[in-house]
Design a protein around this nucleic acid. Structure first.
Lengths: 188, 188
DNA sequence: TTCGGATGAGACACATTAGTCTCGATTGGT
DNA sequence: ACCAATCGAGACTAATGTGTCTCATCCGAA
């Protein structure tokens, strides 16, 4: 009757709830908790046993997103890689995560700590932009804030188009790099 | 006591409500109706006198957005203009509207007629992209869907960055065209 | 088999929002 | 000055979401 019971252990429930919330809130940011519980295959009461309330769950979801993002981007610190290579690697790593992170677009009500983490991510991108400029991949006269915003949106657009099946997932990162760099590179 | 009373006529109330909803929902898509009424300087009951419910208001707001967009874009059919000039004109016309249209990003629950209007807008952009390709401004090997999505997002990014004061409004359109075209133009 | 912890289902109270109604006040036109 | 239409304020009900609680059940471990 419940073959998935064996895997629905104690620690797994919490994880399932967070995962369900990520996916559900990415599509419908205002989805009620009972929908999250249902999607997680968990009772409503169990959700409240693990999380004090909606805010607590939202905070944990945000933290999880940022942790995963950090883990994925952390691999890219391979020394010796050019800024352009790091940019491409970042796109390849982050674009597949779009279907779970898109709800973060709304910076609405999140933890103090979470915003700090988000700031750190933006700083990472800002540093990358600085390197791109230093290595001549991005023209110096383009405002860095614009470049950072563009990279942010490129990730979202890439996921958006692949999710709709209009772009092959494999092409997304290549297209993103090309779109960004050959649009902001040194004028020819 | 109420100097604005003279202008708060019968037909104006409806308009004020729609306008308030546009601006408010752009920032907070889930804002309750009493906040919309308050922002519009109107009683809650009056709002319900003009609109059957939340859905009806949402529909009218969407229609208004599309109508304004159509009106603004309609001016750009000046014959003889190159595709590139039309693209730039579109950016200049549409970017200032971002603060009222951004809530449309969520295609969530809208009128059947509204989605049709939105499709028409995308078709207009798709036609522009075709012209850009024909005139050699956009490389032929880039998927048109990507270009259309990019233009869409460019508008949003441009407003986002100008709203945060990180980019001068006057530079936004120029930057957008440069970002798009010199990123997707013929390889050099 | 027995026991303890965790779970699911559901009842319940509470808060917020949506929608309706009434009443007194204000406005613009006559 | 008067009248009809509209409006704002507030009371009221219904619907929805949130949070707490109880109880029967299931699972794994002893």
């Amino acid at each position: 009757m419940r073959p998935e019971r064996s895997e629905a252990l104690r620690p797994t429930a919490r994880r399932a709830i967070v995962d369900a919330a990520m996916r559900l809130w990415s599509v419908n940011p205002g989805a009620p908790l009972h929908e999250v519980a249902e999607r997680a295959g968990v009772g409503r009461a169990t959700l409240h046993r693990h999380f004090r309330g909606r805010d607590a769950l939202l905070a944990e979801v945000a933290h999880t997103c940022l942790d995963e993002m950090r883990a994925v981007v952390g691999v890219l610190v391979t020394p010796g890689a050019s800024a352009r290579e790091r940019l491409r690697g970042m796109f390849e790593a982050v674009i597949p995560l779009g279907d779970r992170y898109s709800f973060l677009q709304r910076e609405s009500v999140v933890d103090e700590e979470a915003v700090a983490g988000y700031r750190a991510q933006l700083d990472w991108v800002a540093a990358l932009v600085a390197d791109l400029k230093a290595e001549g991949d991005v023209a110096a006269d383009v405002p860095s804030a614009w470049v950072v915003g563009q990279i942010d949106q490129l990730v979202w657009t890439a996921w958006n188009e692949t999710a709709r099946g209009r772009i092959a997932a494999a092409d997304a990162a290549t297209l993103a790099v090309r779109t960004l760099l050959e649009g902001l590179g040194e004028r020819t």
